[in-house]
Design a binder for these strands. Structure first.
Lengths: 332, 332
DNA sequence: TTGAAAGCGGTACCAG
DNA sequence: CTGGTACCGCTTTCAA
């Protein structure tokens, strides 16, 4: 089913059919009606690949995320997609599961699709890709990955500040022995996030931090917490890399008969909806995901519409959110 | 950056470049090397639209879901995508948010993309689409929507049986006054799911059911529960359409000082991971999402590879899962 | 083993 | 207001 068949049935040229399809130029309403009728009868659907090829322009943005299952990423995605739709763009997503190879193939796929813009909300990174990417001429927005690069807009959250707020609060409550529950994003035993926590704790003389990592899921949070408790002296506070893992931690603690926050404190990060619905509600750090989503969408849309605005970096300072999962360090 | 430029640089024809790109026929290794080098140097990425157009075949499946944010849908998606990848296919997803218009435009989009197969895991439905769809010749798999249709494979869960198991158990515990928390999938005040619950309860003479509905989110579950408790006599058991909303219900009850299950029982549906991690862990009904995902993927792959197997219907009988959110009805 | 050329299904410019 | 037609970038015979 193609333009030509529709044209034949409506007794017009393919050019005219194309015109009514795109409301372009002025088509006499009687012929337009004929064409519309033919389209309807033939249940014709224009081939988008042909359209993209001929038109040269794409109305589709690509979006790559580390873990769509985690509401943190999903919320950003949702906002971007909504904004994009309002502007007449589609969004096609790809999930990397924190796997660098998957990132590579996803980016290649997006380039192959000649997307109008690409948002990479990922923790992992392959240096070689950067060059490949800005060589492709596709407007790109990165979130959270390392240093800002040339020709690429970078949005990031000051993770360090967020963690410091958490540790300062816990310290003021008397906590000295911390546990950190992270996930396997950067391969090393000590990824950047864990490093940040240790640095933040090191601002005080009398603290110690032990870390454990697992998958970025509820179950992963539970397992990491179990590992943390299995080895050596138990911490009085467990700082989690995000809310999802913190909820996993809560479960493990509950099963061991430990009361939160009486026996042990727990903190999350991101302030996803679930952090208010779990029990006890999580003390966490708010990352403005909708705001980030709008920023991403705006940037992509702007880069697409006009001459690329200066590609700068935007840093967001996260806010501390006090709820019920934290309390004074228990007496020793 | 296109085939021709690569061809020119490698001093071969575009046909040859195409051959090495697809490992097709035999290309002398020396020329293949030249081509590969040119591709590398130019950072060439084949235009997938052109490829699809010329080749006629697509290696992409479309997948449409009602609410990717709900792990129920996400888990199915994840399984399908994984299976598809292993078979060399891509998956492009679309979220409808239970909106019929969104379903329509998503399906049109998929047809426009000429996907190799389409999976619709949705609760909403537009009758007119069916015709449009199987007229398009695209292999389709539906999950959960109404009656089986011609030319379309249908996978479904016996929701009625699941609900009956829940109600039978609650009844045996002495519950007679039920509340049902559903979501706005079918517009009517009484959607099919609510109807099913009322039917199941009606098998007993002395029961009553009141219903409330809101969005399919944690917050929605909370609000629906609030509505349920605000009007009239409180039920002794709240049956939720799914686990996500049940977790929302738990929160509302907790805030009102109601103990679950001592003061009131709550049940979920789907058995998503979160149902084990919330407190109290939810009594629910297990829907084998991975199994469904494999079924969907297998069907699509089969329909694509060989002559379409007879399009039948598969019905899954869900299993009751007893946990801690249900108990005897309180004395009156 | 490699090249030339005819499409694939649209878009858009140029005439009429 | 409408038709003719040259591409868009790649695949795929058909010949050489």
């Amino acid at each position: 089913m193609n333009l030509e068949q529709v044209a034949r049935r409506a007794k017009v040229s393919t050019a005219t059919v194309s015109r009514v399809l795109n409301n372009a130029s002025v088509v006499k309403s009687s012929t337009r009606a004929r064409v519309l009728k033919a389209i309807e009868e033939l249940k014709y659907h224009p081939n988008l690949h042909a359209r993209n090829l001929a038109g040269g322009k794409s109305r589709t943005f690509g979006m790559i995320l580390s873990n769509l299952e985690n509401p943190f990423f999903f919320d950003i995605y949702k906002t971007v997609e909504s904004d994009a739709h309002h502007a007449g763009y589609e969004v096609v997503v790809a999930n990397t599961d924190y796997r660098p190879e998957q990132l590579v193939s996803s980016i290649r796929l997006m380039i192959g699709r000649r997307v109008a813009g690409l948002a990479a909300i990922v923790s992992e990174m392959e240096p070689a890709l950067i060059e490949e990417l800005n060589h492709s001429g596709i407007p790109v927005v990165f979130y959270d990955v390392g240093a800002p690069r040339q020709n690429v807009t970078n949005i990031r959250v000051n993770y360090r500040r967020g963690i410091e707020k958490v540790l300062d609060y816990l310290y003021s409550l008397g906590h000295r022995k911390f546990g950190f529950v992270g996930h396997h994003s950067l391969l090393g035993p000590l990824n950047e996030r864990a490093r940040t926590v240790m640095d933040a704790a090191a601002r005080y003389r009398d603290t110690s931090v032990r870390t454990a990592a697992d998958a970025d899921t509820l179950e992963g949070g539970r397992l990491a917490t179990r590992a943390l408790l299995a080895s050596g002296e138990a911490p009085t506070a467990i700082v989690c890399v995000n809310d999802v893992m913190a909820v996993g931690a809560l479960r493990e603690l509950r099963e061991r008969g430990l009361r939160v926050p009486r026996d042990i404190s727990v903190t999350g990060f991101d302030n996803i909806k679930l952090s208010e619905f779990c029990h006890p509600a999580l003390t966490t750090v708010h990352i403005p995901r909708e705001h980030i989503g709008h920023l991403v969408a705006d940037t992509l849309l702007a880069k697409t519409d006009k001459a690329s605005t200066a590609e700068h970096e935007m840093v967001i300072d996260p806010e501390f959110v006090l709820r019920d999962s934290t309390g004074p360090a228990p007496e020793r």
